[in-house]
Amino acid sequence: MKISPEQVQKVGELARLQLSVDETAALAEQLSRLVEHFEQLDELDTAAVEPTSHVLPLGCPERPDVTVASLARELVLSQAPLHEDGYFVVPKIID
């Protein structure tokens, strides 16, 4: 399958990645090549094959509902590029 620059642009929006026109065109070409290679999987009939999402024969472990100390707020906020009054700050959200 050929991937068009428009598709790349759309996926870029989903992934919140700004892409220049040149980059979009280059990516469309590169991804097309990769996806064409990936399509070799179509040779395999996998209708009756269970998908693997975990290689482990494990169930999900559970922890007891016991409180553990949170991080100090100064530490939580220490790496934030912008914070104010104990909050993280983002550009105004318009719903």
Partner: peptide, 18 residues
């Protein structure tokens, strides 16, 4: 938002992310 690089002077939220 919480750590790492942040684009300067974002126009809006989407611009900040992208």
């Amino acid at each position: 938002v919480r750590f790492g690089l942040r684009a300067a002077r974002p126009r809006d939220l989407r611009d900040l992310y992208s």
